[in-house]
Simulated scan of single mutants.
Amino acid sequence: MYTRYLNISSILARKSLFLLGPRQTGKTTFLKNLPGKKAHFIDLLKPSVYQDILRNPEYLAEVISAHENETSIFVIDEIQKVPSVLDEVHRLIELNKKLRFVLTGSSARKLRRQGVNLLGGRAAMVRFHPITSSEAEDQIKIEKLFKCGGLPFILTSDKPMDDLKDYVGLYLKEEIHAEGLSRSIENFSLFLNAAGLSQCEQINFTAVGNDAQIPPRTVIDYFTVLEDTLIGHMLPAYTKTKKRKAMTSAKFYFFDVGVGNILGAREMTTQRNPIYGKILEHFIFTELRAYLDYNFLDYPLCYWRSTSQFEVDFVIPLSAKTAIGIEVKSARNPVKRDFKGLLALEEDIKLERKIVICGADVKRKLESGIEIYPLRSFLHELWKQQIF
């Protein structure tokens, strides 16, 4: 079992929370091992529980009444299965201010689409991610995270790539069915293949539509499905530069490097191979996204590309006037052209740090202020909260 970085104790001391993340990322295991806390679980994936809660509006109150002497924390697994139960959760919270609900889910889409009661600020929103480098540090090689991603059951599998393919196929079918898109399963499958090939790049909806032979408007809708079902993330463009006009199209990343490798037909090869660079960039994205979410930091995560083709892989604005710039390179010894984007961006905004993550063996700082980081050094300092 992995020790997770996320700590929700301070939130539970104040209020209830939604814990949202893709399936099999380990949400339930995490909640069953909360330090010093015991919770009662109500699993909506169990057919009997699902039917009971649909038939009997008082079911939830009766369960809580039977267990409130044992615990004040109640976990409702897969809340999107019965979104209407949130009205009853709201009522129970109002009746007993000491009650805490942890509402897990693998889709925000159904909750939002049905316009259900999201508890009006009485519950925090927390995102849950696959295993990060800080959580796997002592147990598996980082190369395995590159190849297989961070889904816990994949990391312990004897045949991780076969199981990953099955996961992607099953997840696709179940999510398509859940979203009422079963009539479009063939179109969505074609789209998913095209999206896999375009990940880590600026999204061109028309080009993806041409590859999948579906209209651009449908492509936009399908990307929204991927975001709302937590399968993917958009990386918005940083557009506040004045000296150089910025591109505005977002980039797209799947939530897990292993899933991205399967859907993008990416095979782990040598460090000099261009595919390695894309996998490394994807991996850094997932680490940064998880770090921001787990530390409850509201900083945006962006990228920057000018119309004159200067680019910075990741920009984290700290304020209106300052940011951190991070460039990811597969080279062992990056040269000036590898970080020209960072120097160009600094002409518009003060960069508190200009970081290049690469295959170097030694961390060093150049006269220009560019910080060269070996991958492991960057990850270590990131999760020790020494980068920002």
Results as ranks from 00 to 15, higher is better:
G169N: 15
A250K: 14
L280D: 09
G209F: 01
Y171K: 09
D256V: 05
F255T: 07
L226C: 10
E267W: 06
S182A: 09
Y238T: 02
F191Q: 10
F205Y: 15
T206M: 01
L164I: 04
G277C: 12
L190Q: 05
A178P: 01
L235S: 03
M268D: 07
A195C: 09
C200S: 13
N187H: 14
K251M: 06
G232N: 01
I220Q: 13
G169S: 14
T229H: 00
C200L: 03
D163N: 05
F254N: 11
D228C: 07
L170N: 08
K165S: 12
A194I: 05
T239P: 07
G260Y: 09
T229R: 00
L172N: 05
L235R: 03
L235D: 00
Y253I: 06
L226R: 11
N273H: 15
G209P: 12
N261F: 05
V225E: 03
R272A: 01
I279M: 13
K278Y: 07
L235N: 01
G277I: 01
Q199P: 11
Q213S: 15
I176G: 02
L164D: 06
Y253S: 04
A250M: 10
R244K: 02
I214L: 11
S249N: 15
G209Q: 05
G264W: 15
A246S: 13
K173C: 06
D166A: 10
K173Q: 09
Q199M: 13
D228R: 11
Q202N: 06
N187C: 07
L190E: 03
D166T: 10
D211F: 06
E179C: 03
A207W: 00
T248F: 09
D256R: 09
V225Y: 13
T218L: 09
K251I: 03
S182L: 10
N193K: 14
F223V: 02
G169M: 08
N187A: 15
K242L: 08
L192I: 07
M234L: 11
N261P: 14
P236T: 01
M161S: 03
I214H: 10
N210A: 08
P216T: 03
N261D: 12
V208H: 02
D228P: 05
T218N: 02
N204G: 03
E174M: 05
R272I: 00
G209I: 14
I214R: 08
T218P: 01
R244Q: 02
P274T: 08
E175N: 11
K278T: 06
I214M: 11
G196N: 00
K173P: 03
T229V: 00
Q213N: 15
S189L: 12
P215C: 08
S198C: 12
V208M: 04
T239M: 13
M161P: 01
Y222D: 13
L192N: 05
A194L: 04
P236E: 01
E227S: 04
E267A: 12
R183Y: 01
D256L: 04
L226Q: 10
